[in-house]
Design a protein around this nucleic acid. Structure first.
Lengths: 201, 201
DNA sequence: AACACTAATCAACATCATGTCAATAAAACG
DNA sequence: CGTTTTATTGACATGATGTTGATTAGTGTT
């Protein structure tokens, strides 16, 4: 299937992508130009256009590459676990793998999720989370009648919440382990944030 | 304090802001230029620079204006309600006012929250939600020891969840009333999404 | 109505990033 | 080795930017 890539091509693309990530971190995606990227990469500007249409194309391809790995990792662990004991107090493996996979590429995820003007990546990531949550909820409770809220609302609610917490975790430079984070998310999502329910006297 | 604004100035700024919103909706924020904006507004390009530094400055000022109204509305209803019965099944007024205020300016909120490359607005909105959630949680449970999860995580979790649902609501052209949406958010946040808790046999 | 004042228009300008091209040099491959 | 592919270089037209100075139009004050 995949022809072996000319080493010059692989090297050039990697240098451009590394330069992109660095520059987004330093100056923000909006401010950087194709000139900046090629200069930082030590390449000629014309070389850029041999590989990418424009700045967005470079970003877009970098996004898809990294998200492809994440989807594969999560689908793998979803397929593994057919039944799951929610009373064990243990987080679902898929949650752990989510945080682990992100920590493997934390440099890139941090830049792509926390820097400004990265909506191309964040919206792709949100799509991914929505899909993930929708599948999880469908497994757990396929009957809409037994939901206390509109399913679409609930899906978006949890997808956004998870992505928000992931972003927080990266902003703070991952102060907790993937397992701890997964546990917190499971707990708050199913039990709410309070130990003693303040709504019941 | 505030001198009466020259009607030419007010008119010009309004035309520029209207043109901005229209064009973001039609072509996306990234693609539009100062030329496009002034052309749509029927103004000379030089006039733009009499009022704003660049495209971002125009966007930024439009954001602050609209968010100022939202903050005021929510602070007002926060101040009114000192005690609140969470068992009433009624949503807190602040939640309702949140959705109502957004529905008053739904055209602008929809464009600013759902179009791509609007992270300047979405991150300001997220800050606002974080502040709102942090205050609400502090009132409800000031003691960290009685939280099942890290407070910062919980704050980000709910702020992101709320903003996600608001965005969904605007994407779908507000299919439910503000009161209904507020009720759904209260319910899912405190009780979880399931009528019968599937985690307890 | 005439006045001074401010805002908007217009044409012009230098600057900069873009995307493309043809010619050339360098590296990879068989 | 020679052939093919890739990267470099300098050049070019294009289009948006931000600014300027001179002019016209609108505001509101006396």
């Amino acid at each position: 299937m995949s022809k072996k890539l000319d080493p010059r091509v692989a090297r050039t693309r990697q240098m451009l992508r590394d330069a992109l990530v660095e520059l987004i971190h330093e100056e923000g995606y909006e401010k950087i130009t194709v000139q900046d990227i090629t200069k930082r990469a030590g390449l000629n500007r014309a070389t850029f256009y041999l590989h990418y249409r424009d700045k967005l194309d470079l970003l877009s391809q970098s996004c898809e590459e990294i998200l492809h790995d994440l989807v594969e990792s999560m689908n793998a662990s979803l397929a593994e676990t057919e039944s799951f004991d929610f009373m064990s107090g243990q987080p679902h493996d898929t949650f752990i793998h989510l945080f682990e996979q992100i920590s493997f590429n934390s440099r890139l995820y941090k830049v792509f999720l926390t820097e400004k003007n990265m909506s191309h990546f964040t919206s792709r990531m949100m799509e991914l989370m929505i899909d993930f949550v929708a599948k999880g909820m469908k497994n757990l409770q396929p009957d809409d009648e037994k939901l206390a809220v509109n399913r679409d609302i609930a899906v978006r609610y949890f997808a956004a919440a998870f992505l928000g917490v992931i972003t927080w975790w990266l902003e703070k430079d991952m102060p907790y382990t993937p397992k701890f984070m997964a546990t917190q998310l499971m707990r708050i999502g199913t039990r709410g944030p309070y130990i003693e329910d303040p709504f019941v006297k």
